[in-house]
Nucleic acid binder design. Structure first.
Lengths: 251, 251
DNA sequence: GCGCCGTCGGTGACTAAGTCACGCCCGCGG
DNA sequence: CCGCGGGCGTGACTTAGTCACCGACGGCGC
């Protein structure tokens, strides 16, 4: 579904109230031209064709290498991010270097913390890091506001994204406060495993995922190994008995 | 506990171009008539007068007794809540009866989890309970959407509220994962204390606040007492040396 | 007053989790 | 060959959470 006739729809994006320069960069920027990436977003399926075309025209598709810090304390984002490909890890770092992973944003999802920061609030607590190479659509502030005004479907998309993140965070709270770390560790192992049942992570990295200490992870993994559930190597874990891990993870 | 009937679905706000903002009482129920409660919301100060009038006309001021469960699993809300007076506690209850308090909504704030549920997402994880008697403006879904479309100021208000809640949740995660419970307990004591330096709570209630066990709270309080920082009575605590507690809380 | 009962809190013994200090092994570059 | 740094193992210890039980207080009916 190619939408190139977007300019004919002159009214498509005209910021109403705020008049905040809806970055109409001369001749439409970016490599998003022509590709209707909106198909990759289930939540955007019900957008009207003109709205969709306008979105495509006013945003740009960017590629970020793995490891890019997308936002963080003192690094406010400029755009709403819609992930086309890759994965963004949002984490909280405490003093002393300990971390917890709050949630991940995957393909087809949006990074709403961005908009929260952009539109409402200063003082970001968390940071977002590209885990893999990331291809994402950057929707500038003006276009975002305009979409909110024009499209009920887009509003639903955005609010659903917020709700999703909030439930994720509440889940993390529940996990940390009430769940045993062996249970949480087994869940992570299953989540992070490749298709072949191996994962290349250090104990330290797993500890940061779970917001605990390296020694704790090491001991738990050792216990898993003793039971024959995993095989451990240097910075590498092979899941020998995933069904047992799943059973534990369901606690 | 009068539940609000949804009137005026579909039609956008009739902007009362007519007289004063206050005057509209055409069939709109509730005690909100005439009172321009929007003054109590700093975030709404920049709303245009017509928008404000429409908001007043289409919403309804309700009074909920202390203890009312405003939302919860299987109890989806029908309105956006703007608190005029009182306090709502939002908490998470795990199986086994243990709880954590996620955040509180105070006067002048809005309960956005409500909108998230309403507009986007099913499956509420948390529940909201009126801690005191609560006076709140109930904005029905249609009016909410209309406001979002019409007013940039209202959008800012809503997104700021989201951002606020998200940062609150991240703060809770940080606390639970990385802070010692004596530090967290001293913070709560200071937060929950009356002006005269006393609080009437049971150890059990404090434990639920912090997501820990009653015995842990009891032992910590006992230790505080041993140091002469507090005086303990049945379901009552007096802060004897608040400065010492503050010092600890700043850890 | 007396006894009943539910809530509130105290306690000891135990397990789970996190902290601290140290030391080993492996791979790699000089 | 050596040194070095990342990754891991380990023991000893502290802190937090769990379990079982009991006693003390306060309200209430009588």
């Amino acid at each position: 579904m190619t939408m190139v006739d977007n300019m004919s729809r002159g009214t498509a994006f005209r910021t109403s109230g705020s008049g905040a320069a809806a970055g109409r960069r001369g001749g439409v920027a970016g490599d998003a031209e022509g590709t209707d990436w909106t198909a990759g977003f289930p939540g955007l399926a019900s957008l009207g064709p003109e709205v969709r075309a306008g979105l495509v025209a006013h945003s740009r598709l960017a590629s970020l290498p793995a490891g890019t810090v997308i936002f963080g304390p003192g690094k406010a984002p400029e755009n709403l991010l819609l992930l086309v490909e890759g994965s963004v890890r949002v984490q909280q770092t405490a003093e002393g270097g300990r971390e917890v992973v709050l949630y991940r944003v995957g393909a087809g999802e949006s990074c709403v913390l961005t908009t929260a920061c952009l539109l409402g609030y200063e003082g970001y607590p968390a940071e977002g890091i590209a885990e893999t190479e990331v291809r994402a659509v950057m929707v500038p502030r003006g276009a975002f506001e305009d979409l909110i005004v024009r499209s009920a479907a887009f509003r639903r998309f955005v609010f659903a994204a917020y709700a999703r993140r909030i439930t994720d965070l509440i889940r993390v709270i529940d996990d940390i406060a009430f769940r045993r770390i062996d249970v949480r560790l087994s869940q992570r192992l299953l989540d992070l495993a490749e298709a072949d049942g191996t994962l290349r992570v250090t104990h330290q990295e797993l500890a940061l995922e779970l917001g605990t200490a390296r020694e704790v992870v090491s001991r738990q993994l050792h216990e898993f190994q003793r039971r024959g559930w995993v095989a451990l190597g240097r910075a590498q874990i092979r899941l020998v008995e995933p069904s047992a891990l799943r059973r534990l993870a369901r606690e």
